[in-house]
Design a protein around this nucleic acid. Structure first.
Lengths: 201, 201
DNA sequence: ATAAAAACCGACCGATCATTCGGTTGGCTA
DNA sequence: TAGCCAACCGAATGATCGGTCGGTTTTTAT
């Protein structure tokens, strides 16, 4: 692997697990085997390195959801949202470091002054919320979903799913066994009870 | 105000808004008017200062919920949980810095090696989950709530409410208008539909 | 084969960091 | 009034930090 990729990969792990400030360039140099000067040959400074990583995170997550949207097929809107939630939980496991980075405060602090950083974060969150919202819209049309405000419900839903992921990373509780209850809560928030009653009767 | 209290107060703000590592003792010294040596007279090192602050956070939050529990009265369990959620949202506004500190990664990282830190965090989360769970239990008894697992539902509920608070602090969206939809989602997750149908009929 | 370009190296730099320490102050007690 | 102790001060310290720079090696293009 090229030194540049090794630096990006290791820095992603260090930044997400230990934080931006807590990660030193000398530590990164030692772990990658790249000399100090090599890192600054590829990235003009520490912040630029961080931005490159954030861009990779954005690309990875966006393309993962794009692909999921193309391949997955669902019976109705409610099942689509459920499928997206399941896929999100799956992704947070596969791309653990990337999502951990998004759960840190540093990117959002940087986004307050750095518009590039802000655009990366916004496009990730817009992508996630849009795909939730789309499922809700479809569900309203086909009658499987009934909510007051699709966008706001998408945000609450996302907050819930992401909140459970965070609970897991904090290591205070074993939140891994929450999958069943999380999905049940999703259905209760979204499901059109009238339709369910019609089916049951 | 004593220098010690000024240090604690300012450090709480700096640690929560800028992070542990990003906060320098010289900055703290400058902002409080206390000499460098004075800080280390009251706290044996930076980590000890942080632990003192976390203890204050724990005391403040625990006593706030204890008082809320003693004064608030509700018709049934469902309304109690709704009241707790509303009070939680209220607290995150009043004690902004304290909750921001709990939303950072540093305390949880420190908790992995420092048992004192871990016990502070555990008692805060146990308190919050217990009060959610209690409302659910009461609601199951009086028929206003119907869920599969009270403890797990309490965790999902907490993850949702706390997730919305986080969305707010990230400043990417104006999540302040989410209150109505958040409460609606709470009710949908908890409410015993059979009872509601009985009342309607 | 050769020259230009890109990747890489590691010693070095100034700034900043948490922490120390010898000394001063001011209020309380005996 | 004498003596004590906690509160307070700020210059000094050694370690570590992000970043630079002149030079060497490797890759690429002709």
């Amino acid at each position: 692997m090229s030194k540049r990729n090794a630096i990006l990969e290791t820095a992603t792990r260090l930044f997400s697990r230990n934080g931006f400030k807590q990660t030193s360039m000398s530590e990164l140099s030692r772990m990658t085997g790249a000399a100090g000067g090599t890192i600054f040959h590829h990235f003009k400074n520490k912040e630029d390195l961080f931005l490159n990583i954030l861009k990779d995170v954005q690309d990875t997550i966006l393309s993962a959801f794009r692909q999921h949207k193309e391949t997955a097929r669902y019976e109705n809107g409610l099942e689509m949202v459920e499928g997206v939630v399941t896929f999100y939980l799956h992704l947070t496991g596969v791309l653990e470091d990337q999502f951990l980075l998004l759960h840190r405060h540093y990117p959002y602090q940087m986004a307050e002054t750095n518009t590039v950083c802000r655009s990366y974060l916004e496009s990730v969150y817009n992508c996630l919320l849009d795909i939730f919202e789309e499922g809700i819209f479809i569900g309203i049309e086909d009658g499987s979903v009934k909510v007051e405000s699709p966008r706001n419900t998408a945000m609450v839903l996302f907050a819930m799913v992401d909140g459970v992921v965070r609970l897991n990373t904090y290591n205070l509780y074993h939140a891994g066994s929450l999958y069943h209850d999380l999905m049940a809560s999703c259905r209760k928030i979204l499901a059109n009870e009238n339709q369910r009653r019609l089916i049951n009767e």
